[in-house]
Design a protein around this nucleic acid. Structure first.
Lengths: 348, 348
DNA sequence: TTGCTCCTCACGTCACGTGAGGTGGC
DNA sequence: TTGCTCCTCACGTCACGTGAGGTGGC
């Protein structure tokens, strides 16, 4: 009965004791409650009415009264709810006014927690952990009020990841803020189990999140973030549809060269992608012919970008041997990664 | 503090123990809680937030957090409320569908309980208690869906009272039903203390009311009510502004004749209103001159109609010595009484 | 002295949820 | 035998409200 009606077992027991839903029969020896099939529809009605907050005495009236009387009770409840929301809007706008005398610089947006988490996961890998580049040790939250979009951006100068998510509700003007990766990771952990909405407020030097019955605040990173819109500008000469899984396999299993970073002297694996004149792509060590060109990229970065792009069909955009390489999911146009290539002439 | 903040004393004590609103100081000897002036605005904020159903942990966050964090909590709560109402509308329209397969013949309206009570009081006196006229032993509820008005009507064939009240919310088509006076009186008693809305459903042979946490149903009187719209048609030759209190005094203190009813042989007092050629009105026994005419009406009925009209300036509409007499309040055009005159020639 | 306000402490309300401790059928 | 579902009974939660019984200042 609990499974059929969507009412918890403890609530069914309570409804029995409260005289709302009496079982058709109770086993005299073990006390098991038995319900008939048409009690299921009654139980579903009760579940519906409770879900919208109707008190049990009113629910009893709906169940026991004539259809006319029941309808009067239902309409009266709906009217209470409508009136309540009108009141709440009034009260809360008064609260907002008292709370934010400097409201001008404050923006608040609402979006599903899952959308936010997904977008965060789509860009998190690209954030830098280099302490000499503090403005890159974070994720940019870039709120576009006109388009009602939130763009998340992360970069370490070698690659850049962007994810855009549409908003449920917005208040205030466009604003952007850098959230430290540590705070972003902590928030992601807390949001992992959330299914409802999250509300984000950005003001001054702070970013605040509120969701379900919890809240989370972080200080903004007080640095200038690179102009990602300019970097993300498409400058593409070749656009190739690729199958994510097969390219991932080719990159994983294909040849690589071990490289040493100019900056920190660390080692990484270099993958070379070769584009032939007919649009074919290969992971290779061969020298490019006259009608071919080769692009070198960090193997790990390429794999992470492919993972963020998701499964299935992706688009690989190339701009010659030294132009940036972009990976997009054609189904999610707001989400993409850009990789800076490694100059092969300097390598060989 | 309770008076200033609108929070009950018991709630203030509870907020102290719950750590929401701690008194600035507590008298060590008698335990009196003392609050400072700026705690009043905090308390008012708490009252506002509770009024719209915000849980105490969230309220604590609003009080203790930065303005940014507080705003995020407030916006998140408002979003929950908005989403909740959207859900409720969906759930309840499903409930309505399951409840009323014969919805076509059912109408439901919502109006303030005070408006309904007032309208009922404005017409109740005119209802008949004659058991030979069962269709008049009630108050007609005539719901006009197009104009979103509810007309209440009562008559005993000697007089007719109408009161119209605008509706907050309507569902279904125009319909009318006769509510027995006994049920109307009982309902009036129950509604006397109500300040909120009442929801009225009319269907089949039933009228149902729902208000606050109570419900009330009555069977309709299954008879045809006279066509009050035709009777209430204005057929007026003279329209006099009158001052309610002074006419009431004149009728009370003026001469009357004792009459015997044709129908039941009961006795009543007859008041004669004389209209002279210059528009003057008098309560008198004199015979009308050539440019005058006189109308005889039941004194008690006239006084009741004046009472229902309210205080201040009223309009008295006459249509010669044997036409009906109407009393209106110019400020409440939907509410008026009509009295049938007693034929003076048959009397004298 | 009366009336008013404040106090503490205990218990009630609403609609359940959560163990503890135990049973019954597959 | 293990795991699952059902049971009762008692207690917890949330945001207070309601007495009972008593005190302090005007």
């Amino acid at each position: 009965m609990a499974a059929l009606s969507g009412i918890s077992v403890s609530a069914l027991r309570f409804y029995d004791s409260a005289g709302i839903l009496l079982p058709a029969s109770v086993d005299p020896v073990n006390g098991y409650r038995r319900y008939t099939a048409d009690q299921v529809s009654q139980a579903r009605l009760v579940a519906r009415l409770r879900r919208v907050g109707m008190p049990l005495p009113d629910i009893r009236r709906v169940l026991l009264g004539t259809p006319t009387a029941a309808l009067a009770v239902v309409q009266a409840h709906l009217q209470r709810l409508e009136d309540g929301l009108v009141d709440a809007r009034r009260e809360l706008s008064a609260v907002r006014a008292s709370l934010a005398p400097k409201e001008s610089s404050m923006s608040t947006i609402v979006l599903p927690a899952t959308s936010f988490l997904e977008a965060l996961a789509d860009v998190r890998f690209a954030a830098s952990d280099d302490p000499e580049l503090p403005m890159l040790n974070g994720v940019l939250l870039d709120f576009d009020a006109e388009l009602s979009l939130l763009h998340l951006v992360a970069t370490d100068r070698h690659r850049l990841a962007v994810s855009s998510v549409p908003l449920d509700s917005v208040a205030g003007g466009s604003v952007s803020a850098i959230m430290p990766v540590a705070a972003a990771d902590e928030l992601a952990g807390k949001l992992a189990a959330q299914t409802a909405d999250v509300t984000v407020s950005i003001a001054d030097d702070e970013i605040s999140f509120s969701y379900a019955d919890q809240a989370f605040s972080a200080r903004q990173l007080d640095h200038d973030f690179p102009d990602y819109r300019r970097i993300a500008q498409p400058r593409t000469t070749h656009r190739l549809p690729i199958e994510a899984a097969s390219l991932r396999r080719a990159v994983n299993e294909g040849p690589t060269r071990t490289m040493t970073s100019d900056r920190d002297g660390g080692q990484y694996q270099l993958t070379v992608l070769m584009l032939d004149g007919s649009g074919g792509l290969a992971v290779t060590h061969a020298e490019p012919e006259a009608n071919e060109f080769a692009v070198g990229v960090n193997q790990e970065f390429l794999l992470q970008a492919l993972d963020a792009g998701g499964d299935g069909q992706l688009l690989l955009e190339l701009d010659g041997p030294i132009g940036p390489l972009a990976i997009r999911n054609p189904g999610r146009t707001g989400t993409f990664s850009i990789l800076m290539p490694v100059r092969l002439d300097a390598v060989s």
